[in-house]
Simulated scan of single mutants.
Amino acid sequence: MVRYVKEGNIFTLSGVKCYAHGCNCVGAMGKGIALQFKMKYPQMYRLYKTKCADGTFTVGDVFEYVTGDEHIYNLGTQKSWKTKAELEAIRKSVDTMLKLATQDNVKSIAMPKIGAGLGGLNWCDVKAVIEDVALKYPDIELVVVENYKEKCRF
């Protein structure tokens, strides 16, 4: 099942401890949500960068990083930060992520609208792919935050 949140921050959603995001396969996490993942999980970033350098993380792959009760799914959605994301890579990586989540008894995963920000794809096309894949995994809720917005703090 897919639930959409118009705006928010995936890291502050109530009851969600597992996260996913689209990545390039050259080891760069310098902008957008990827930079937030890099800062929040520096050890994950180091491992991701190594996997990219040695060629074990490629388009369509998933690098799962587990820390405590959090699962982080790095989805290989584009070759480099200079290229567009690929719909087939999104299909393959989301499917693999949901298989892994099923094996690990993960019930909820928060993610941004992958592939449609810096990835350059049309969000309607990406959304159709995510919804199609998610139909095979009705026991896992994907919470997709469509627009990043930090809550105001007074």
Results as ranks from 00 to 15, higher is better:
50 T>K: 04
59 V>Y: 00
48 Y>I: 09
104 D>T: 14
118 L>Q: 10
119 G>M: 04
36 Q>W: 03
133 V>L: 07
41 Y>T: 10
71 H>T: 12
32 G>L: 00
13 L>R: 00
143 V>A: 15
85 A>G: 13
42 P>W: 08
21 H>T: 04
138 P>E: 15
28 A>G: 02
64 E>G: 03
107 K>N: 14
17 K>H: 10
3 R>E: 09
106 V>H: 03
102 T>H: 06
2 V>K: 13
137 Y>P: 10
106 V>R: 10
111 M>F: 00
109 I>L: 11
81 W>E: 09
36 Q>Y: 08
41 Y>D: 06
115 G>T: 10
61 D>L: 07
34 A>V: 07
114 I>S: 00
6 K>F: 01
36 Q>V: 13
28 A>L: 13
85 A>F: 09
107 K>A: 06
109 I>M: 13
137 Y>G: 05
60 G>T: 06
146 E>F: 00
17 K>L: 12
23 C>P: 08
141 E>Y: 15
80 S>P: 00
125 D>L: 06
47 L>W: 00
51 K>V: 09
66 V>M: 08
139 D>I: 14
1 M>V: 15
129 V>A: 01
84 K>L: 07
101 A>S: 11
37 F>Y: 02
71 H>D: 06
17 K>I: 07
109 I>W: 07
89 A>F: 04
109 I>T: 05
74 N>D: 08
106 V>I: 12
78 Q>S: 01
76 G>T: 13
22 G>N: 14
83 T>Y: 01
125 D>S: 15
92 K>A: 08
69 D>F: 09
35 L>W: 05
129 V>S: 00
95 D>F: 05
142 L>D: 09
132 D>L: 00
32 G>R: 03
67 T>V: 08
145 V>M: 15
101 A>V: 04
139 D>W: 06
95 D>E: 12
69 D>V: 09
7 E>K: 02
57 F>G: 01
2 V>R: 03
117 G>H: 11
29 M>P: 14
84 K>E: 14
35 L>G: 00
17 K>E: 08
56 T>W: 08
105 N>I: 01
29 M>E: 06
51 K>M: 10
55 G>S: 11
120 G>I: 12
59 V>D: 04
130 I>V: 15
